[in-house]
Write a protein that binds this DNA or RNA. Structure first.
Lengths: 124, 124
DNA sequence: CGTTAGCTACTTCACGTGTAGTAGATAAGA
DNA sequence: TCTTATCTACTACACGTGAAGTAGCTAACG
């Protein structure tokens, strides 16, 4: 599984959300203030193609239409694994950090607990 | 708050753990298989000095002894914030990912819940 | 006191990443 | 059909990062 850079991940995010999209459509998912130049997005898509994270599915007019090859969750797993490596492979310090910075609410935790129980029920 | 790279963070980790240390001592915290050259660690320490994440406290023989200026938790916060940005600022998808990959146990969640309650008690 | 092991200070280098420009192909509207 | 807007393919470049070499200083040991 390849490692994707921040901007590459944002391009993937657009594709995961839109399903299929042209470079122009991907570019337009960025808020104006932070929108990269058309050719910048193009470069990212091209690099993602080389990494086989993305493929062209068809052509509309003279524009190619792309779709994601790798899934959002597999990419996210990679990101989280990288992060966890920094936290010594244990989740607690990460959780503690999330709590401390106020990002993690009781509801979030309850939700996570539910997910764990469900997962255990499925594959115990 | 500056952004630290992966290797820079590993050097910081050594300093957070050891308190004060020379370049040699920092280098030796790396497992042999992944241990960078002495001068590589030295380079990292210099860069951290420039970023004011680290400072020299004294000299033993001809070797400088360093200590961390920024705290582990502030650095970790920065890392987590960067990660959360990718997850759209919400913790749930991140939690879901942790659960799915089996990194998050029920105990971890219970522990997090305790932390949140404690935090609420302190600054409600 | 001289030699040597270790350390510092500085330099170098390659690769990844973000950023964007340009030339030429193509399509779509006047 | 001619012109213009758009897209592609390729190129360029600067900066951050990981990696390490070298020259010269320093200290410690014989």
């Amino acid at each position: 599984m390849v490692r994707l850079s921040k901007l590459e991940l944002q391009v993937m995010e657009a594709l995961w959300t839109l399903g299929r999209a042209s470079v122009r459509e991907i570019q337009e998912t960025f808020a104006e203030k932070v929108r990269p130049a058309y050719t910048t997005v193009q470069t990212m898509v091209y690099r993602l193609e080389v990494k086989q994270a993305v493929r062209r599915v068809k052509k509309i007019g003279n524009a190619h239409v792309f779709e994601a090859v790798i899934s959002r969750s597999s990419a996210q797993r990679r990101v989280v694994d990288d992060l966890l490596a920094f936290f010594g492979g244990r989740s607690q310090p990460l959780m503690a950090q999330l709590v401390e910075s106020g990002h993690l609410t009781l509801d979030d935790v309850k939700e996570a607990e539910k997910l764990i129980r469900r997962q255990k029920a499925v594959k115990p």
